[in-house]
Amino acid sequence: MCPQVDFDTIVHDFDARTQRGLARAISLAESGRAAPLIARVYPQVGRAMTIGLTGPPGVGKSTLSSALVRKARTLGKSVGVISVDPSSPFSHGALLGDRIRLTEHFVDADVFIRSMASRGHLGGLAGATADAVTLMDAYGLDVILIETVGVGQSEIEIAELAQTTLVALQPGSGDSVQVLKAGIMEIADIFIINKADHPMANQLRREIRSMMEILQFSGWVPEVVSTQATTGVGIDELWVAIEKHIAWLKTTGKMHEKRQEAFEHQVRQLALGNIAVRLEDRVKAESHGASDPYAAAERVLATFNVSL
């Protein structure tokens, strides 16, 4: 028989800053059982630099993550990477393959990589991703990279969580315009034109520019950076752009605003998740044999002491 790992052991291992402690703490969060630990560490967090990375499948998100880890390590910073992949809605299983691009960092004691399955959560992240960021921050990691699922459709939740959101696009893929239309344009703090040695890179740059004109950004105007993640070309420039954005957040007071929004977002998620379950029970109960939807909705709401 394998020994059980209890809550106190996990907290003890987490406090001792062991990778096992952090790993198991993230699992606790995934099982919805990390609340006491989050409560305890929350006062210490907010120190880490958090970077979100989204874009269509195959654009090079994981390869870019690996290049950014390399960059951060040359600066002496410790790094956490969270890669989210979709769970199958049928089997609930998942194939988490982003590590394939990150192998060079596996045995670096100052790099911690965690693959997360979305477990039914929509919006490009997993339900526990925010907690995973909190735990990595409290653990003491300097930079936290978050790679979204990347199916392209309205993965805007990352912008609520990360300080800086990178949107990666690929020249000549045609789907770049689709991605821009899907509402991802608005969340970009920095556009990355990856695989920039492609002959159509300049055309993509023009497309991004003209979309930006339509949106008329005020305040921060997104930077557009060309990279080749596989060779590292452009990663220094990307890092400079990220630091510039963070500095802008700090000097304008937006950092504080963003943190407040992220906080509210998680409160909303936690409350909604709980209410959704209660609601579902009531909906089933009150719909049975009800005369019309409004009457049933009134009875559902009555159990929450409100009315239509």
Binding site: S87, S88, S91, H92, G93, A94, L95, L96, G97, R99, I100, T103, F106, S115, A117
Partner: peptide, 11 residues
Amino acid sequence: RDAGMEVIYTG
């Protein structure tokens, strides 16, 4: 995965 597990594949 099809049996419902989360499989981390490392290459």
